Each structure stands twice: as C-alpha cells, then as structure tokens.
Amino acid sequence: MGRVGQLKDFSSLFDERILERAKGYRDAGMVTSVAQSADDGDLWHAWVAGTLGFYDVDIRIHRGMVISAACTCPYGQKHSYCKHVGAVLLTIVDRQGERDRRSSGDTLPDDASKAVRWYWHSQFPGGVSGDAVDVLDEQDWDAVRRVLESGLGMSDAGV
C-alpha cells in the first residue's frame, strides 16, 4: 500500500450511526484488497463484503483529505459516504498506524507466515510438542494466515 500522508479526520463526512456500522465492518475483517492506484496516487480501491456480496469502493484522498468516495452498494447509489466507504477509510488509518509502529522499531514481520512464526516463537520459545507444526495442521495455518492478511494487511508473497 502506498503512502497517503497522514489521513485527516473524516468523521464529519458520516452520520454517526453509519460510522459505527463502518467500525463493525472493519472490525469483522470485511474490507479486502485495499490498494492505492499506481497511475493516480490519490485514488484508492477496495472490496468490502456486504449483505448482497462484495462491493467496489473508490476513494480519492489528496494531501490527507478525503475528496470523494463511491460505493456500488444500494445505499452508495444515493449517498457518497456509506458504511463500506467508512470501513475502508478506517482500514487505511489502521494500516497507517501499523506501518508507523513497524517503522518506529516494532519487529513484527510484514508477511503473514513470518508473523505467525515470530509470534509462536516469542510466546513459546521451547515450542509445544517440539514445534508449532505438531499443534496446528495446514488448515489451521491457512486460517491464521488469512486473518493476518485481511486484518493487518500483511502479504504472504515471500512464502
């Protein structure tokens, strides 16, 4: 994910009830594929799981300010700032905070598999039954990796 500068407060763009629902969507990991356009660094695109499937969300952010937003959900056809747009903006803020924590010396790795291994070995230095592989099967590891990838925006390209 590219740099956007520090995203400024956008809460006034949303009805309080909509923003609370957006937080629920963000917390539930409903936001996926958040990406900044390579051609237009001000444009962001994401998919957000919703009631009727996945919705496309586009947001234009310039110098940390939200300029415009659009979502393919039914509410978004009449209003620019739906819960899906809010969830994407909250996710961008979370990822900025995560990036800031990493750059300030936090040693959490960038890819999901390394993060799981880092956590496992930091919490269980001697291992459990010899190693994590003895405790978690491949399906368990896939589930943990998906949570880290969607919830923390980690990639797994290096594994």
Rank of each mutant, 00 (worst) to 15 (best):
V48W: 06
V57N: 06
R146V: 04
I18T: 15
G64K: 11
I18K: 11
R145V: 14
L108K: 11
R95V: 08
D56M: 10
P109M: 02
R99H: 10
Y25L: 15
S122K: 09
S113N: 09
F124P: 00
D39C: 02
A38I: 11
V66F: 07
G29E: 08
A115W: 05
G64Q: 03
Q96R: 00
W44S: 01
I18A: 06
Q139E: 13
Y81G: 04
L52P: 00
K23F: 10
Q139G: 01
G97C: 04
H62T: 10
W47D: 13
V133H: 09
T32R: 15
L152Q: 11
R21D: 11
V31R: 02
S155R: 12
S11W: 05
D134V: 07
Q123E: 14
F54K: 15
V144F: 12
S37Q: 06
S68H: 11
S122M: 03
A28W: 06
G105I: 09
W118C: 04
V144I: 15
V147S: 10
G158F: 05
V31G: 04
C73Y: 06
R146K: 14
Y81A: 02
G86W: 08
P125M: 03
Q77R: 15
D111Q: 07
D142V: 05
R102N: 04
G158K: 07
V66L: 02
P74T: 12
S104K: 14
G97R: 08
R26H: 14
T32N: 11
S122L: 06
A70N: 11
R17Y: 15
M154H: 04
L136W: 13
R60I: 08
C73W: 06
A49R: 15
R99D: 15
V4M: 14
G41N: 07
Y119E: 09
A132H: 08
C71G: 11
C71T: 13
R99C: 06
R3F: 07
A22E: 09
W120N: 04
L19S: 01
S155L: 06
V144M: 14
